[in-house]
């Protein structure tokens, strides 16, 4: 009986694999979108979160003052110690933090997100894939 169960289970698992492989291959060929690194979120997804998102600007103060995403809070590593207090004051614990930097190869957003997670023990933090450039390109 157990053998029969396992045989049937294996059959179901393999049967499901066939369309999955076709679908996977088709989607791979169809769009070559760069995969997300751990902790990253795409702009489209963050947009759909709507009001639940709190943008965090990990760029320099000068860039932030020139322009930033709506409602973004400035928190970078250059001035972490001075910025962290106002950041914590403004931060709403019900919101999801999405950190961005310039885009391309900048890694400031990942560094700031890691510190928010580690030093402030705020778990709900993402990094915006493509950064500010992605937002502007839209």
């Amino acid at each position: 009986m157990i053998a029969r169960l396992l045989r049937q289970l294996a059959f179901v698992l393999v049967l499901a694999l066939a369309p999955a492989l076709v679908s996977g291959a088709w989607q791979l060929a169809w769009k070559k979108e760069e995969p997300l690194a751990p902790g990253e979120v795409r702009l489209a997804t963050a947009r759909e979160w709507g009001d639940k998102v709190q943008w965090v600007d990990a760029r320099s103060r000068a860039k932030y003052e020139r322009t930033h995403l709506p409602g973004a809070l400035l928190l970078n590593e250059d001035e972490w110690d001075t910025l962290v207090k106002p950041f914590i004051d403004e931060w709403d614990s019900d919101k999801t933090l999405v950190v961005y930097c310039d885009g391309g190869t900048c890694d400031a957003s990942h560094a700031v997100a890691a510190r928010i997670r580690k030093e402030l023990s705020i778990p709900d933090v993402y990094v915006l894939k493509g950064g500010f450039a992605e937002w502007e390109g839209k």
């Binding site: 614990s93 030093e119 402030l120 023990s121």
Partner: peptide, 10 residues
């Protein structure tokens, strides 16, 4: 080194 530097309650 200090970890975390923030404690909070809802």
């Amino acid at each position: 080194s200090i970890e975390p530097t923030l404690v909070y309650w809802k």
